[in-house]
Design a protein around this nucleic acid. Sequence first.
DNA 1: TTGGGTTACCACGACC
DNA 2: GGTCGTGGTAACCCAA
Lengths: 93, 93, 93, 93
Amino acid sequence: MREPGPGHNSGDVGGIAADRLRSFVERIERLEEEKKGIADDVKDIYTEAKGTGFDVKVLREIIRKRKQDREDLKAHNELLSLYCAALGYDWLL
Amino acid sequence: MREPGPGHNSGDVGGIAADRLRSFVERIERLEEEKKGIADDVKDIYTEAKGTGFDVKVLREIIRKRKQDREDLKAHNELLSLYCAALGYDWLL
Amino acid sequence: MREPGPGHNSGDVGGIAADRLRSFVERIERLEEEKKGIADDVKDIYTEAKGTGFDVKVLREIIRKRKQDREDLKAHNELLSLYCAALGYDWLL
Amino acid sequence: MREPGPGHNSGDVGGIAADRLRSFVERIERLEEEKKGIADDVKDIYTEAKGTGFDVKVLREIIRKRKQDREDLKAHNELLSLYCAALGYDWLL
DNA sequence: TTGGGTTACCACGACC
DNA sequence: GGTCGTGGTAACCCAA
């Protein structure tokens, strides 16, 4: 059949590469699913921690703080690199 | 050593199961990293789609709408039409 | 007093026009506060609209779309239709 | 004319209180405009500061840090209130 | 069980 | 094109 029925267009449709487009959609949705799975795992861990008697809110704060510390450190290092580069002190890194 | 040195507490500290807590933190941070990796992959796909000539914003809208419940989407669209009609904003649809 | 006490530098400090800088900070923070106040007012209106029975999400969508350029909106909608047609996702519109 | 022409509905339309709805839209858009005006003012100040020789990025960081300090302080005080309430030490505040 | 407040994530737009 | 800041949406938690 040269003209696929409704619900599944395989060639160009209105000048659009339908297959290509569908492929993008599927790849993205597949990854989004994976991501959601992981997010659920994280949630489970928080739940488990709570069940063990830990305060979830505090735990979240620890995770958050650690993350921002890492980011600050990263920013710091980048600045350092920048300055060293500007000063010709690359050997210092 | 019964009293671990600073920087690495292994037993109960102030009545807290430090190992346990550390384990939670590490598991969560590990998963968060994975999650970020996937998010980056998704971003790459959007970039690729853009390079192929697709409109990323429209693509995102399709992905977003597809993960909504069909009934909810239908109800939302109808309400939107209704409001626009009431306001004389039909050009907006 | 040539050497202002700690906590309030009025002249040049380390070659920096401290007063000037402080003035900028204060003016900005003042405006930011105003901005926040208005943002809160907006939120209140949405709440009020909700209380009157309107769907806030739809209302937000109208506001959002109205501040887009008409031509851009038209182009976007057309592209969306096109993609959906190509994918057989017409139910999504 | 009891039936207003297209573009301006004043009574109930499709069971919708059009006037009410339009009023919400207008109030919100009015405030959003004000907000934008203020945001522009802020931008101008940054521009002015830049013209005076200040590093805008650093200035932004100062504003940001001060804001988060205020928020941390707020959080701290709330926690303090909470604990005092829990302990019956309200007189301490 | 649901509604409302809070929080975190994510996408969009502005600026550089 | 890359970054930053902001706004919206959805998830989670608590209270009723």
